[in-house]
Simulated assay, not measured.
Amino acid sequence: MDTVSPQAPWSYVLQLPHDRRAPRVARMTLRAVLLGHGLEELVDTAELLACELVTNAYRYSDGHATLRLRHMEGGRLRVSVWDTNPVIPAPFGRPPGALAPLRAPAPDACTADGGRGLLLVQSCADSWGGYPLGDDLFGRSGKLLWFELAPRPEPVLAA
């Protein structure tokens, strides 16, 4: 029987309609892909962060979105979400190393209905970023936001 090596490179793309159910579909798909490739340790964090990006794509753009999952060198997972809105939200407009340390949200932000999703991505992902996409040959524009998660080393148990 053939098996899939968790270290083999792979990529999946999911087209998501502009629909309120898109974040749920993205979560379910991501979970199935990662479990199918033996990456259980990344499922919960990847699911949470991908859902934040897909939810923002639904809330702040008026068109479809694309979720891409890519397994990279060293076992890293890159999750990217493209949408039709070209505006890069903070903190994705600057590279991770250029940002000040995380600060507690303002008191009024704690009672707000939203606005903390990208802070979750910033604090939980190993790397993240975003860039606008100009019009291409196929008429696509918008932005691409992404994050990466690295596998966690196995804990060493004392004998």
Score class of each variant (00 low, 15 high):
Thr29Trp: 07
Gly114Ile: 11
Arg116Tyr: 15
Val81Thr: 06
Ala104Glu: 15
Val54Asn: 08
Tyr60Cys: 05
Val43Tyr: 01
Leu48Trp: 04
Val81Phe: 02
Gly36Phe: 05
Leu102Gln: 13
Gly129Ile: 02
Leu133Gly: 02
Cys110Met: 15
Leu102Trp: 14
Gly97Ile: 09
Ala46Val: 06
Asp126Gly: 11
Gly38Phe: 02
His64Thr: 13
Thr84Ser: 10
Leu34Asp: 04
Val25Ala: 09
Leu48Gly: 03
Gly97Cys: 03
Gly93Leu: 05
Gly130Gln: 06
Val25Trp: 11
Val87Lys: 08
Arg78Asp: 02
Ala98Met: 11
Ser80Lys: 00
Val43Pro: 07
Arg103Leu: 15
His37Lys: 04
Pro89Lys: 02
Asp44Glu: 15
Gly97Tyr: 11
Tyr60Glu: 06
Arg20Ala: 14
Arg70Ile: 10
Arg116Thr: 15
Thr55His: 10
Arg103Tyr: 12
Pro23Phe: 05
Ala90Phe: 09
Ala112Trp: 08
Ala22Asp: 05
Glu41Asn: 08
Ala22Lys: 04
Val33Ser: 08
His37Val: 09
Ala100Asn: 03
His71Gly: 10
Asp83Glu: 07
Gly115Gln: 09
Ala22Leu: 07
Pro107Trp: 08
Glu47Phe: 04
Ser123Gln: 12
Asp108Leu: 13
Arg20Thr: 13
Gly134Lys: 05
Asn56Thr: 00
Arg68Asn: 04
Asn56Val: 08
Glu73Cys: 12
Tyr60Val: 02
Leu48Lys: 06
Asp19Tyr: 05
Leu119Gln: 12
Val33His: 08
Gly134Ile: 01
His37Met: 08
Leu49Met: 04
Met72Ser: 14
Ser127Phe: 14
Arg103Ala: 15
Glu73Val: 11
Leu34Lys: 05
Ala109Arg: 11
Ala112Thr: 00
Leu67Asp: 00
Arg59Trp: 06
Gly38Lys: 04
Val33Lys: 03
Arg76Asp: 13
Gln122Met: 10
Thr66Tyr: 07
Pro101Val: 00
Leu39Cys: 12
Leu53Glu: 02
Arg94Ile: 09
Glu40Met: 07
His71Glu: 06
Pro132Val: 02
Val79Glu: 05
Ala46Leu: 03
Pro23Thr: 01
Ile88Val: 07
Arg21Asn: 14
Pro91Cys: 08
Gly130Tyr: 06
Pro95Glu: 13
Arg24Ala: 15
Val54Phe: 01
Met72Gln: 15
Pro95Leu: 12
Ala26Asn: 02
Arg76Val: 09
Pro17Ile: 03
Ala65Ile: 08
Arg24Thr: 15
Val121Asp: 07
Ala32Tyr: 10
Leu120Met: 14
Asp19Val: 06
Arg27Val: 08
Leu137Ser: 14
Leu99Gly: 00
Leu53Asp: 00
His64Met: 14
Pro96Arg: 04
Leu102Ser: 14
Gly115Ser: 10
Ala104Met: 12
Leu67Lys: 02
Val79Gly: 04
Val121Ala: 04
Thr84Glu: 10
Ala46Lys: 07
Asn85Cys: 04
Gly93Thr: 03
Phe138Met: 13
Leu133Cys: 06
Ala104Phe: 15
Thr45Asp: 10
Arg68Cys: 05
Leu35Asn: 10
Phe138Glu: 15
Ala98Gln: 13
Trp128Cys: 00
Cys110Ala: 14
Arg78Ser: 07
Leu35Cys: 06
Cys124Phe: 15
Asn85Pro: 09
Gly114Cys: 14
Cys124Glu: 15
Gly63Ile: 06
